[in-house]
Design a binder for these strands. Structure first.
Lengths: 187, 187
DNA sequence: TCGTGCATTGACAGAACGGTCAATGTTTTT
DNA sequence: AAAAACATTGACCGTTCTGTCAATGCACGA
């Protein structure tokens, strides 16, 4: 039962950290919100930072799995899938629990590049870039790395602006921009 | 002298908050770093939040002034100026003190849209959007609002990724993407 | 039935948090 | 020179922070 308890804790902590910030949410309130006493939490994780890292690992897996699945459900060809990425973003933005990207927030609160939390955030984005890179290559882009980096720009920008203002047409704007960039690469 | 003392305080606080986060940096350390005692700070600002709002007001003015000036120095025609925006971003990213955008970080730490700090961040981005909008209109874009929103996506994305990874080619990638989007609008 | 081991707990420690206040300079006015 | 006005300070308040620990409950094997 210990493993599943731990997973439950991380899953609940994910939700709590998503609402409050990392520094803003203390361990006492976290204990209350997860229903796990502080001492029990510290049995599983040596420090708050370790717990945050576990939360980010779960979130990385969760988010990338979800995105790949949704994209594959929405479109078949690599070209269409690249566009579908922005449709999935739109779905995400419209969720009532949407509160920006946990990794962008993490890198905002842990600015030092050598900090493990910052490194975890960077790694997550690197993996997303890799995914777009693969799609761009399969779609036959002339410069797949460049296209992937540019689509990453649109994606991160969309996340930030959807959180700052209301979601509105942001995902659609990003999708249209992505289409234009793909056009330019002969897709 | 009171007015200038206050301005000094805000200017120094701006630097300090830029290094540490908003929640992460306490008032005691802030007092030490600014050289102004805590009591003196609270003479000028009722709460920490008020000080943060003053810092953000200064940063908004500072940043937008700097960007407009640099852009006008780098290019004359509206079309060239739109591209020059991304050159100025590149200059910013390469500064050793670059630590992402203060407003993105603010909206990360103050997620509630009704929170004054979040609102200040949203307003800053709205003003930047307005600036791009004006340039896009002057350049003769077919859909200037749309183009401005898309360039905002590239800009915010570039800031986030330049902070997460190293600056690298990010500003150049964003500039190339902007050129493609402007092409599409007949510019 | 009695231990043995493990999970859980409330209370606590020491430091740091935002914010306040009486006391002490330091000007400025008369 | 005396006094009124202002600026600044270190010490302090109650709370909350991360992290700890002795005590308790509880399952399970002998």
């Amino acid at each position: 039962m210990s493993a599943s308890k731990r997973e439950d804790l991380v899953r609940n902590a994910l939700k709590s950290f998503n609402r409050g910030g990392f520094h803003a949410l203390g361990m006492d309130r976290l204990a209350k919100e997860t229903g796990v006493s502080k001492t029990a939490i510290y049995k599983h994780f040596r420090t708050k930072e370790d717990l945050i890292l576990a939360v980010l690992r779960l979130r990385d897996e969760q988010f990338r799995n979800w995105m790949v699945r949704r994209v594959e459900a929405l479109a078949q060809s690599p070209r269409e899938q690249l566009l579908a990425v922005f449709d999935t973003l739109g779905e995400w933005f419209d969720e009532p629990e949407f509160r920006s990207c946990m990794f962008i927030k993490a890198s905002s609160e842990y600015q030092d590049h050598s900090h493990p939390v910052h490194a975890a955030a960077a790694e997550h984005k690197r993996l997303l870039n890799q995914y777009l890179n693969r799609l761009a290559g399969a779609a036959g882009a002339e410069a797949p790395e460049m296209l992937a980096r540019q689509l990453m720009l649109l994606m991160e920008g969309a996340i930030v602006l959807a959180h700052l203002h209301a979601p509105g047409t942001i995902a659609a704007d990003a999708r249209a921009a992505a289409a234009a960039l793909m056009d330019q690469q002969g897709l």
